[in-house]
């Protein structure tokens, strides 16, 4: 039997209890045509170094856990095939623009807070009153936001966004796109509350439409487009409140 082909993975390592600075460690992994980078990472953890730390769950591009920088590109490692890099080595790093907790695991604190800030759920006054039955919606109304509802919170867009890396006030692509998704939902009544947050400081205006969030999105959400549409809505609201300040009228 011929010797098994191998590939080299150069993996970002950082263990806060022993490392003051991150380092790169090379691992030789068996090359299988049908393996993805995540398979190789799991093989290393199972057979070579059990201390390798990375997030993953579904292995099929649904859970959004396994996002990492693969050769400098934000990718779901469950969808990055070894054969697309073979025979060259692959450099795996944690997503940029996030603090690193350990190896490939990044801190989600800031992202979670920003996500919650846009109230990514349907807001209604009559939420406890079910006497009216379901909230009806036509296919045309669904089409207004369906694309933006495909987000899996994988945060690749934050790793691709230079503004998210430089401006703390900026809510970032996924959170803004999700806010826009609910603002566009005909069943929702929370637009004004969301715009309260979006109109603050650089929350939405930090975006200069670099557009790379849309390029890297594995779910074709187009956060860049959603943010520009949300800006138009926010600007409209700004002028409306300028003419009739909130709370002044009926």
């Amino acid at each position: 039997m011929p010797a098994q082909d191998t590939m080299t993975l150069e993996i970002f390592r950082y263990h806060p209890e022993t490392d003051s600075e991150p380092r790169f460690q090379s691992f030789e992994v068996p090359y299988n045509e049908d393996w993805v980078v995540l398979d190789a990472m799991n093989w290393i953890k199972d057979h070579v170094d059990g201390s390798l730390t990375h997030r993953w769950s579904c292995r099929m591009g649904v859970c959004g856990s396994c996002g990492m920088m693969v050769n400098g590109e934000p990718k779901l490692t469950c969808a990055a095939f070894l054969k697309d890099y073979y025979p060259f080595s692959i450099k795996v790093e944690p997503l940029v623009n996030f603090a690193v907790e350990r190896d490939l695991v990044v801190s989600l604190d800031g992202f979670m807070e920003k996500l919650q800030a846009v109230k990514p759920y349907i807001v209604r006054d009559d939420v406890n009153d079910t006497s009216g039955g379901e909230y009806m919606q036509t296919p045309a109304q669904l089409a207004q936001y369906k694309q933006y509802s495909m987000c899996i919170n994988c945060m690749l867009c934050y790793a691709a966004c230079p503004v998210a890396g430089h401006e703390d006030e900026f809510l970032g692509p996924a959170a803004l796109a999700l806010g826009h998704r609910y603002n566009k939902d005909s069943r929702d009544q929370g637009q004004s509350e969301r715009l309260d947050v979006m109109l603050m400081g650089e929350a939405i205006w930090g975006c200069t439409f670099v557009g790379e969030c849309t390029e890297v999105c594995p779910k074709h959400v187009d956060p860049a487009g959603a943010i520009q549409q949300a800006k138009a809505g926010a600007a409209q609201e700004y002028f409306k409140r300028f003419v009739a300040p909130k709370g002044a009228g009926a």
Binding site: P139, L142, A143, T214, D222, G225, Q228, Q229, K231, A232
Partner: peptide, 15 residues
């Protein structure tokens, strides 16, 4: 190039 992304026009269910 940005206008269709920023100002989508819907004809019923189709963009």
């Amino acid at each position: 190039a940005a206008v269709p992304q920023a100002m989508p026009i819907y004809l019923g269910e189709e963009r």
